[in-house]
Simulated scan of single mutants.
Amino acid sequence: MTATATASGFSPNPASSSHGRGRPCVITRRATFSASHRYWLPELSAEENQARFGPCSLAPGHGHNYTLVVAMAGPLDADGMVLNLSEVKHAIRAEVTAQLDFRYLNEAWPEFDLDRPEGKLPTTEALCQAIWTRLAPQLPLVGLRLHETDTLWVDLLAPGSAPTPMEAFLSIRTHFAAAHRLARPELSQGENETIYGKCARPHGHGHNYLLDVTVRGPIDARTGMVCDLAALQQLVDDLVVEPFDHTFLNKDVEHFASTVPTAENIALHIADLLSAPIAATGARLHKVRLQESPNNAAEVFAETPQLEMVPAALEALVAG
């Protein structure tokens, strides 16, 4: 479990209250379960299901090892805790993992009964939403993160941190390899090395970049999706991975002929490339995160009004 103190309630004198009593904190708890599911809508033909959901439509379904991170918040009690950890573990086990572990999600919960008008597919987004409805009466939720795989996950935030918990932040991860040189053409080699160090060497150097793309939107009442996941992945492949992979960015990508390809500028350019096409899918590009190396990464928020919305819940989910 991790704990993160919120800035708004931080006191310069921890000894002023016994065991931190009354001071606000966000805590997280991680849980895992294994389950299978199938994407198949009875109102569509076999051909339509195949076209829409691809291999995910194949019977009898497929499985994942899910990881759930639960973020909770509140003031510390007299024992120095937001909540008793045993109670948190019991609530998550009783309401979620005991009901879902080694289950077929399409038949596990009423939300996924497609014979009901309100039934939806058990996508990552819809599953996270269903988990929220079960845990919210038990725990002071501020955020949930559900990983279906290492390259696909969803976040839900409490009201006030996001427009509504019915909206989800869906993230996909991919990668590409590329070389670059950090140098401004109007400067001398010596001046560039003063600014960029080894990165200014004339023949450049390479990285294996990790790219996270996060979109935001309402969860469709029937498909259970924020957007067409296959279409989103195809956009990222077509507009970023294919044009960037195994290139010398300064020479092979026109934008970087006149813009220094720092991690920040690459992330900004990716956000510019993806923003409008993703909007056409019905979702909104929320942010792009580009990891250049284990030690360096850049994040760009595509939604300007959201720049001030960096809630403690989301940060805790990342750390959790």
Rank of each mutant, 00 (worst) to 15 (best):
Glu308Thr: 10
Arg216Phe: 10
Lys120Thr: 12
Gly320Glu: 02
Asn84Ala: 14
Phe244Leu: 11
His286Glu: 09
Arg181Asp: 03
Tyr104Val: 11
Leu235Thr: 10
Arg184Val: 12
Gly61Gln: 09
Leu152His: 10
Val26Gly: 00
Leu139Ala: 02
Met1Ser: 08
Gly282Phe: 04
Glu254Met: 09
Leu146Glu: 03
Ala319Asp: 14
Gly63Val: 04
Gly22His: 05
Pro75Ala: 09
Val300Gly: 06
Thr262Arg: 06
Val70Tyr: 00
Ile278Asn: 00
Glu242Gly: 03
Thr304Lys: 15
His19Cys: 14
Ala98His: 11
Ile92Glu: 02
Leu274Asp: 00
Ala94Asp: 15
Pro311Gly: 06
Asp212Trp: 00
Val260Tyr: 00
Val300Gln: 05
Glu292Phe: 03
His90Thr: 10
Thr4Ser: 11
Leu317Ser: 01
Pro14Ile: 09
Gly197Glu: 12
Asp245Met: 12
Leu135Asn: 05
His147Gln: 13
His19Ala: 15
Glu43His: 15
Ile266Leu: 07
Asp212Val: 07
Asp245Cys: 11
Thr164Tyr: 03
Gly9Lys: 06
Pro218His: 10
Asp101Leu: 08
Pro55Met: 12
Cys25Ser: 01
Gly22Phe: 03
Met1Val: 10
Thr28Asn: 06
Val253Trp: 02
Pro277Phe: 07
Asp238Thr: 12
Ala302Ser: 15
Ala179Arg: 04
Ala267Ile: 01
Phe102Asn: 09
Leu114Ser: 05
Ser34His: 14
Leu41Arg: 06
Gln129Arg: 13
Val226Tyr: 01
Phe301Trp: 08
Ala108Lys: 08
Gly80Leu: 09
Ile172Leu: 12
Ser8Pro: 03
Ser34Ala: 15
Ser57Ile: 07
Ala263Gln: 02
Asn265Tyr: 06
Thr164Ser: 14
Pro165Ile: 06
Ala108Asp: 05
His37Ala: 07
Leu307Arg: 14
Pro243Phe: 06
Phe248Leu: 14
Ala179His: 02
Gln291Trp: 01
Glu148His: 03
Ala78Gln: 13
Ala35Asn: 04
Ile270Ala: 00
Glu125Ser: 08
Gly224Ser: 10
Ala158Met: 07
Leu157Lys: 00
Leu187His: 10
Val253Lys: 02
Gln129His: 14
Asp113Phe: 12
Ala183Trp: 00
Ile278Gly: 00
Glu47Ala: 13
